[in-house]
Structure formats: C-alpha cells, structure tokens
Design a protein around this nucleic acid. Structure first.
Lengths: 115, 115
DNA sequence: TCAATATAATACTTTTTAATATATTATCTT
DNA sequence: AAGATAATATATTAAAAAGTATTATATTGA
C-alpha cells in the first residue's frame, strides 16, 4: 500500500505557505487600515495620507507591498494615482476581520440568538 | 467644531493592532497546519507530530505560541496533553481561509452562479 | 525508568520599521 | 520652452526586532 500521507501533506504545506503569505501581508496595522479605506472605494494616495495620517514615504512603501503582493490595483489620473482592491481572497479575509473585530456587539447578538 | 477624526483614528489603530496580532500568529505555515488539524477535533501532541511531520521541539514551540495567544486550550490526560481550539475569532478566519485556499473549485462555481 | 511534552539556550538569518534624501511624472505659469 | 510645484515612488541606510532551527535538558506521569 503506497503511503499517500506524504503527498497530501506536501499539497497542504504548499497551500499553507500560500495562505500564510497573504496573512503576512495583512498582518500590519498600517496595511490593514489602508485596505480598509481602499475597500470602501478607490482612493488616491493623498486621500489615504489625510484619512490615516501616515506620512508619505511610509505610505508609499506599504502601498508598494500591497501592490507587489497583488492586493491592490493602481490607475493614474494626471498627477494622482488611484488605488483599488485587486484580490478577492484578501477581501474575503478583510470581511471576516471586520465582522470579528469591528462589529463585536452585532456579532454577540447573533451568537446569542444561535443558542 | 471639535476634530473627531483623530479619535476615530485612534480607535481604528487600536483595532488594527489587535487584528494584526491575530494575523501575525496565523501567518506561519506550521501554525496554520496545526490549527487546521486541531480544528477537526481535539488532538494530542503525538498525533500532531505524526500527522504533520514537524519535529517535537519545533512543534512544542509553535503550540506554545498558539497557547500564549489564546488560540488553543489544553487538557492533560495522563502523559498526554490534548489541544483544542479556544478562539472563535481565529476559527472564523480559518474558515474563510479554508474556503479561499482549500476549496477553489467550489468557490469558483458559486462565484460563477452569482453572475 | 520510560514515554510524552515542555522549556532553555544558542546561533543564525531574515524582517521590519523608520527616517532622510532623492527621483519621477505631470501640470501650471510665464 | 523653462522652470516651478504637486503628487507619488524609490533608494538608502540604520537599528531593532523577529523568526527559525538545533541541541540539550527538564518536567510530569505511568
């Protein structure tokens, strides 16, 4: 009987590596705030800077990481560059994070209802 | 008119920090595999070691991190220590990760259906 | 004393973060 | 067209902090 355990495990490891790559990209407060803001509608760097009060080089650096990891798209309009969400997977995770961390009251209610 | 922007932003930063702490804990392939396994039912260290082929001190170290961060519970039974999931938030995130990374076919179908 | 698990100690590499400076691209003014 | 300004990106670097893997040892219970 062939040992299929190792094969499955290799596939799982690969998936785990991909998954943890996304999580790692998300695991930074600035980037979470940026994605949160961008997810509510396309915005340019200046708007992000003002809304989140992160100073420009840091902002650009973090946006660069989000770009490299394929989480956001960009579009130039004159001097400005507009960012929007590019990754469904990232959005799916952000949605859950929002439910778990930003809407605790509502969550508790529906959890209670479920009992 | 008081500037309420800063107050909201502080709250958001706090939430973002909490959120990224969880993400950081999850952002490691070994820990993802461990949680995945444990989420399918309580298991002891030996079972995890065999199922995932991670060697003992590393395993114990990663389990230690999951414990410290409150993601898992432990229960001793004789020589063995059984691990189970302790965090609803972590499970909610794991569930989405599973849907996004481990069930791509099913996901694509339902996405297509939605059009 | 053995089995199961945890902790400690260490050495190493890799990341992260933050700050400052500079470059690029586009628009505006004269 | 020249130069000034605005918006954004890139480069550089320094310092701190984390992550990883390994080997050895300790704890707890049977």
């Amino acid at each position: 009987m062939p040992d299929t355990t190792g094969i499955d495990l290799d596939a799982m490891r690969k998936t785990a590596a991909d998954t943890s790559a996304l999580l790692k990209t998300l695991a930074n407060p600035d980037r979470l705030l940026l994605l949160c803001q961008i997810s509510q509608g396309e915005c340019c760097v200046g708007e992000l800077e003002e809304a989140l009060d992160i100073h420009q080089p840091t902002l650009s650096q973090q946006l660069g990481i989000l770009r490299e990891e394929g989480l956001v798209n960009t579009r130039r309009e004159g001097k400005r560059i507009y960012y929007s969400i590019a990754s469904e997977k990232a959005m799916a995770v952000m949605q859950v994070l929002y439910e778990q961390f930003c809407k605790p009251a509502a969550r508790r209610k529906s959890a209670a209802r479920a009992h």
